[in-house]
């Protein structure tokens, strides 16, 4: 079953072309790793998929679950099931994590026409997830990412992913800035999330994340295009040889 189909995608940021004819097919149950040198367009791809303002698609198409999402706003894509774990999660002072999670879950429930989730249930679920990610459940009372360490912010992203249960999770360099222990915790979270009904795109610089999360496919992005695709052995090859031989 196709979850994401990107066809000959061109996109620009501030008038600067970044993606130059990128195509990618992602099916349910798959984990794709996107690797590539700095400036190759990895984060742009992640943001374009999420519909971030300022990222302009100039040609090509993106279909999510057989639906063209070009005209959908970011929050519409989110409730449709696209999740982006941020490379740099922002702080939202004064808004507690609990309020934030509740508002997010309510928006999802509203979009699906389902019942509003009850607060007690959310708290219980969020506390359990927090424990599984080595986060102090007290964090729910604090402002969103307010005063969090880099590792805590990344774990909070994974918590949100597990709570919202998206169909497609795009992780934008979630491994950057994590120590080995935190990396293991985050990887466990992603492995727990993986199922036959969803798909994951891992944007990463480093092979080390792929030691913990086994990808089905590895793609190399260079100058806005996928220049090489393979299985997980490609990542090991890149680790050894670098990117230069591909570009």
């Amino acid at each position: 079953m196709s979850i994401l189909n990107i066809s000959n995608l061109h996109a620009e940021v501030a008038g600067q072309p970044i993606l130059k004819g990128l195509s990618l097919q992602v099916n349910a149950g798959e984990v794709h790793a996107i690797m590539g040198p700095n400036g190759s367009g990895k984060s742009t791809l992640a943001n374009v998929l999420a519909g971030r303002p300022g990222y302009q698609v100039t040609s090509g198409s993106v279909t999510f679950q057989d639906m063209d999402i070009a005209d959908q706003e970011a929050h519409e894509r989110a409730v449709a099931g696209i999740f982006l774990a941020f490379q740099y999660p922002v702080e939202i002072p004064g808004v507690s994590n609990m309020e934030f999670l509740k508002a997010a879950l309510e928006s999802h429930a509203h979009a699906k026409g389902g019942n509003q989730p009850n607060a007690a249930g959310i708290i219980k679920q969020a506390r359990e997830l927090a424990k599984s990610l080595d986060l102090n459940p007290e964090f729910l009372k604090r402002g969103v990412n307010e005063g969090f360490s880099g590792g805590e912010k990344k774990r909070n992203e994974i918590l949100q992913m597990l709570l919202l249960e998206p169909t497609l999770a795009v992780l934008d360099e979630t491994d950057s800035g994590l120590d080995i222990d935190a990396l293991q915790v985050v990887a466990n979270g992603v492995n727990k999330f993986r199922s036959q009904d969803n798909a994951v795109i891992l944007v990463t610089h480093y092979q080390r994340l792929l030691d913990h999360i086994q990808p089905d496919f590895v793609h190399v992005l260079a100058d806005g295009k996928i220049v090489q695709s393979g299985d997980k052995t490609l990542a090991l090859e890149l680790e050894e040889k670098g990117y230069a031989w591909l570009t």
């Binding site: 929050h75 941020f86 919202l164």
Partner: peptide, 10 residues
């Protein structure tokens, strides 16, 4: 955008 990405309208 962080809020929107979690489904919350602007």
């Amino acid at each position: 955008f962080a809020c929107q990405q979690r489904g919350i309208d602007p």
